[in-house]
Each structure stands twice: as C-alpha cells, then as structure tokens.
C-alpha cells in the first residue's frame, strides 16, 4: 500500500542541529528539569511530552516527569528544543490582531458563543484541516482529549473545551500530525499555543500539518484532583453543573438549582506554579483567540490574528455560520493586567 517513488541510493546523510546545553555534561532532560521544572516555570503545556521520542517523558499527576531518565533518556534534546519556557520570553497584552470582534455560533452550543468549536469546524468545512483537537470533559470535569473529524461526533458529546483543568492536548496533537492527511486544528490555552508555535518553529512537519491554532483566553488552569476537591468543598455539585465562568473577579458556577460564587483570588491557594508565572491571557501567538470576556453574554470574543485565522473568519461570515457581535477591547484590560502582574513571579 505504500506508494513511494523510487529514489537514488546514497543520498542518505543529513545533519541535525541540537541546542546548547546550559548545564554541560548533563542530559538534556536534566537541563530541562533544572531550568524549567524545578524553577516552577513549567506550565504543563506538555510540548516536551509530546515530542519525546521514547514516549517516556510523562505527565504525572501534577508534574512533568521522566522516571528512570538516567537509563532511558535518549538525550536527543528535543524536549529542550521545543519547551516554550526553556528560554522564557514572557508575552503579555493583547498582541497583534487583524480584527477584534465577537461571534456566536449558530451550529454549536457551548459556553458563550462556542466560537472555538466553530472555527475548527469551519476550517474543516473549508478543507483546510481534516481534524480538530478538542478537550472533552465528563460530568466530573475529568478531561480527555478528543480528535474530531466530523460534526456528527459532537452529537452525544458536549465538548466543553478546557475549563480550568489541564488537558493533555499536545501529545494528542503529535499523534494527530502523524495520522492527518490535510492538517490539524487545535484549540488550546496560551501556553499550549506557545508550545505549538515552538514545535512549528523547530520541525517543518508541524508547520506543514498544524494549520489552525485557536487560543483561549486563560487566567489559569488547575490540576483536576485539586480543583475538584476544592469545588466540592465549596458546594458545587458536578452532576448539576451547567456552566462555570469568571465574572468580574468572581468565580461563578451555575448549577440547575443554585449558583456558587466566590472570589477568584481564593483559588490562588491551589494555583499551579506554572500559571502563577504566566503572563499571557489572550494567547498572543495563536491564529485566533477566543474567550468569553469582552463581549455580550452568549457571544465569544474573537481576536483574529493571522491570515489563516482571517480566512476562516471570513468563511464563517460568508457561510453565516455565526452571528457576528461586538467585541469590547477595554473589558479585557482587567484580566490582561491581572496576568501581567505575574511577571514579578518569574525569576530567571
């Protein structure tokens, strides 16, 4: 079944550039561990996990780890090459954009306008990509990553997107890249977007295959075990949960029968260290950023940043897949600044 052109023998040598080691005579992973993980910089975007050739770098309960690395590490340096925080250049603000707007998908229902989903599916309809990577969340908020190839797949499955809980998106993106024929679209948090960009920078195959990166506005993410414990403690019943949001510095969990509200700041107790050092709220490196803040209820704020994003956005408008709303840039300021303040946590 493999149809490959006949090739000449002998042209089979090539060179691969590997990065400098900051700690000489140590394995690359040790470098990574020393520079990123141990310094609490790691945002758990899992770019390193996704690229690790042995598949040995793993995502433990709350930290990226490589058990037995002395024996098993291949020392190829891939993790260091792709880590967005190895040479951390914090990004913040709203970033460049072509269009700041808001939208509400007519085809999908989700929190707010479901524009993340809409972007992926419109890109799929355009033929730009053949799959999107989403996060699926069960009633208990446990996440699993989901490759979506068609609209029907969403029927029995409310794709809530990543909601304050880490999800292993990028390892799945790697798999998707090996399987895809046209391209992949991915929805992720700002740190993941940075990871994807780093992957694309380093490896042409990602450049070629990852076509659309939708970033989400992100204040922070939590570890599943901790956040669920915390929320249950606050009286949130996951079986009745409809929607959660952060409105004006307050965490609001809407359930069928009641609402639970408390100050976001209270969640700082369980705030992961990586997020406390993250300054990017709007995913400035993405093709399109989407979030609920900055637009009317039921709409998603949409920040179209690149040509690809623009193309898809135009397509959405052309096909009438979404209601176009109005985005208010100033509403974002509070959270952008809130995150920017975290710069002080970074000690390089």
């Amino acid at each position: 079944m493999k149809m490959a052109a006949e090739t000449k023998v002998g042209e089979a040598e090539w060179e691969v550039k590997i990065p400098e080691k900051k700690l000489k005579d140590r394995l690359f992973f040790e470098n990574l561990k020393a520079m990123v993980i141990d310094t609490q910089l790691c945002s758990r975007c899992l770019t390193c996990v996704s690229i690790c050739p042995g598949g040995l770098l793993v995502n433990e309960e709350d930290v990226v780890d490589f058990p037995d690395f002395e024996d098993k590490c291949l020392d190829c340096g891939a993790c260091v090459r792709v880590c967005p925080r190895y040479d951390y250049k914090p990004k913040s603000g709203l970033g460049d954009y072509i269009e700041f707007t808001a939208g509400q998908s007519k085809r999908f229902k989700g929190q707010d306008g479901a524009m993340g989903t809409e972007f992926i599916f419109s890109a799929m309809d355009m033929g730009l990509i053949d799959r999107g990577i989403f996060v699926d969340r069960d009633e208990q908020w446990r996440t699993s990553v989901f490759h979506v190839r068609g609209k029907e797949q969403l029927e029995k499955l409310p794709l809530g997107g990543t909601k304050y809980v880490f999800a292993d998106i990028l390892p799945e993106l790697k798999k998707a890249v090996t399987f895809t024929k046209k391209g992949v679209g991915v929805v992720g948090t700002p740190c993941m977007v940075s990871g994807v960009r780093k992957l694309q920078e380093e490896f042409p195959i990602f450049k070629e295959k990852v076509k659309l990166v939708v970033g989400l506005f992100c204040t922070e993410n939590y570890h599943y075990a901790e956040v669920s414990k915390y929320l249950i403690g606050k009286g949130v019943d996951f079986s009745k949960l409809i929607k959660t949001d952060i409105i004006k510095g307050k965490f609001v969990a809407t359930m069928t029968d009641k609402e639970v509200k408390f100050k976001v700041a209270k969640l700082d107790d369980i705030l992961p260290s990586g997020c406390s050092r993250c300054t990017d709220f709007t995913a400035v490196e993405s093709d399109v950023s989407v979030g609920s803040v900055g637009s009317a209820a039921g709409f998603s704020t949409t920040v179209v940043r690149t040509e690809t994003g623009k193309e898809v956005w135009d397509y959405i408008k052309k096909m009438g897949n979404a209601e176009v709303g109005e985005g208010k840039v100033e509403e974002l300021d509070f959270l952008i600044n809130h995150k920017k303040e975290r710069e002080k946590n970074i000690q390089l």
Partner: peptide, 8 residues
Amino acid sequence: LAPTPEVK
C-alpha cells in the same frame, strides 16, 4: 491505533 477514532 487512531486516537479517539471517528466511527461513522
């Protein structure tokens, strides 16, 4: 094995 395969 395809991750989360689409069954159609």
